[in-house]
Design a binder for these strands. Sequence first.
DNA 1: CACCTCCTCAACCAATTGGTTGAATACGAC
DNA 2: GTCGTATTCAACCAATTGGTTGAGGAGGTG
Lengths: 122, 122
Amino acid sequence: MSDRLSRLFAALADPTRRDIVTRLVVGDATVSELAKPYDVSLQAVSKHLKVLEEAGLVSRSREAQRRPVHLEAAVLAEMTSWIHRHQQAAEERYRRLDAVLAVLDADLDADLDADLDADLDD
Amino acid sequence: MSDRLSRLFAALADPTRRDIVTRLVVGDATVSELAKPYDVSLQAVSKHLKVLEEAGLVSRSREAQRRPVHLEAAVLAEMTSWIHRHQQAAEERYRRLDAVLAVLDADLDADLDADLDADLDD
DNA sequence: CACCTCCTCAACCAATTGGTTGAATACGAC
DNA sequence: GTCGTATTCAACCAATTGGTTGAGGAGGTG
């Protein structure tokens, strides 16, 4: 699971980590600030931050004994790009398939109409 | 990790599963067709498909003894929505922060200019 | 210096994951 | 009914994950 995209998806597959990302949207925060809302140990949150950092979603600087955590929003674009590409392509395919089916339906209706006309001729 | 979004992200955190999704974009496929490119067992691929199915990314019908796999492209929109929301919000915040910093810089430049003018007056 | 705060490292543990093999099911063909 | 093909189920295994506790390390403050 070592490639970049896998690490990105895996990082956001945990609700606590998604929560942390949501929190970081409104501004940088220290580890203890981030840990406060949860009833897990500070070390557990520290581990989550390490995962987010290794995925490139977050960066940490140093400020006295604090380690402010910063969201790297641009990286999120990498994921949307992958997802969007697939979504678009698949939906385009279905759209074309629908068009083909619509044509087939139209032909079927035309045939039925022809049959009906033939019946009326009786 | 039981919530919907977590299952979605986790499902795409595996390169083989992302590969399968990519393959399914061009059309439905059976389990053995999907397994062919990989040197893992058919059962392993079957397990991957189960993960994708439980995440809602894929659906399976029945056609004789085959089980054609179908990509549910619409579900991908759920992920893009989450990511995009966060990305947008964070970037908007940075944009505003940049604006504030720009104003501070302008003020600083103005002060420097004033100092320079004062010096010239000497 | 000693002390307190913020945070990480290390070792451990239970649960989950991605893989295996072997047996079982479902269905069409002979 | 028997055979072959397509797929899943079950049991197992090693590696990873998300959590814990305990012991530091880094850096201000008395």
